[in-house]
Amino acid sequence: MQGTVDGFRYGAVTPVAAYLMACLGGALGLRCIVRSLVGERSWKPGWLALGAVAIGCGIWTMHFIAMIGFQVEETRIGYDTGLTVLSLAVAIVVVGIGVFMVGYRGAGRSALTGAGITTGLGVAAMHYLGMAALRLDGDIRYDALTVGLSVLIAIVAATAALWAAVTVRGFLASLGASLVMGVAVSGMHYTGMAAVSVHVHGTTGGSWAGESPSSLLLPMLLGPVIFLVLAGVVVMFDPLLVLGDGEWSRPGMGRRADADTATGQPPGRVRVLNDRPDNRRIRGVTYARER
């Protein structure tokens, strides 16, 4: 018999919470990628990796928070632990591939297209791998056209997010990009869920081989959420990121961060001028007064 599928068991609570987590992961990821473009090269891989994990955790957390609100009235739902964990790994790895591609190759057409397609397919793979982790007394079926639309949304969303990561500099612009990214990622999820139909084997409530949503998803969500909070602390207290729209976001700052070609000084160093009376000294470093 055909099951009655409900993706909004708790009303607007799960969609709103899922959207906020997608925005949080996107915002942190975008700021980390921006930071990698203006800092010392030795820190670039670390910032890119942190950004990739933040975006991946945000997408994965969004998916499974939304899935807490998913139910089939005629049967109970459980989850396979291994596939659920694997879907998190897939989200982080594929986002990382896209982030490192644009982080090192820039937002050129070929690099951005390749990174967007790779990341979008990976996000879709995470979604449907997470759906494969569902355990219920029935068969899950998908509408091919709607699935294709969800994959297309994922690719477009990933491409737009990666483009924003390497072109958007200001804090408010990054925030706006993350809000749009949250809409796109959540839209991909609920488009994919619209493709779902369930053929239930019986009407007795059934049994399943897997953990219940409350016993598995809530504890598993705790880890990525804690990571996002810690990543937020790192971003908030990083001096360059705190500046936001300040001096470092001006054109050419990224080049000065790599090396001061005029003075030969290492990144971030200020050339010390002669100790003349019309110069001012702060903490042992002499700066020229503006004339």
Rank of each mutant, 00 (worst) to 15 (best):
L136S: 01
Y142G: 03
L152D: 04
F227A: 15
V225R: 11
H199Q: 13
G98Y: 06
V93P: 08
V180S: 07
L149T: 03
D143Q: 09
L179M: 13
A144G: 06
M220G: 12
V196P: 06
V156W: 01
I97A: 15
D137I: 03
G122R: 09
S110M: 15
V93I: 15
F237A: 11
Y104E: 04
T159L: 13
L216H: 06
F237I: 12
V180K: 01
M188A: 00
T113M: 14
Y104P: 05
H201C: 07
T118G: 12
V185G: 02
T118W: 15
T146Q: 03
R105N: 03
H199C: 06
I97R: 11
L152W: 05
V235T: 11
M236S: 09
I92R: 09
G170T: 11
A154V: 06
A161L: 15
A125F: 00
S186C: 10
G98S: 09
L162P: 04
P224G: 00
V229E: 15
A164S: 12
L162Q: 08
G114Q: 12
P224C: 01
T159W: 13
W163V: 02
G114M: 08
L112F: 02
F237L: 14
H127Q: 02
G98L: 01
T146N: 04
A195C: 06
V147Y: 05
A184R: 04
L121T: 01
V200G: 07
V156N: 07
H199V: 11
F100N: 05
V151C: 07
A195L: 05
T159N: 12
G122F: 06
V183P: 07
Y128P: 01
G98D: 11
M220R: 08
V233H: 13
L136E: 02
M181T: 13
V94I: 14
Y104H: 13
A125H: 02
T118P: 10
I117Y: 10
A161K: 05
L121V: 04
S174L: 11
V156M: 12
V99P: 08
L121Y: 06
M193N: 03
V183W: 05
S214Q: 12
G182T: 07
S212W: 05
A158Y: 03
L175R: 08
Y142A: 03
G182L: 11
Y142Q: 04
I155G: 00
V233L: 15
I140C: 12
V151K: 01
V233K: 12
S110I: 13
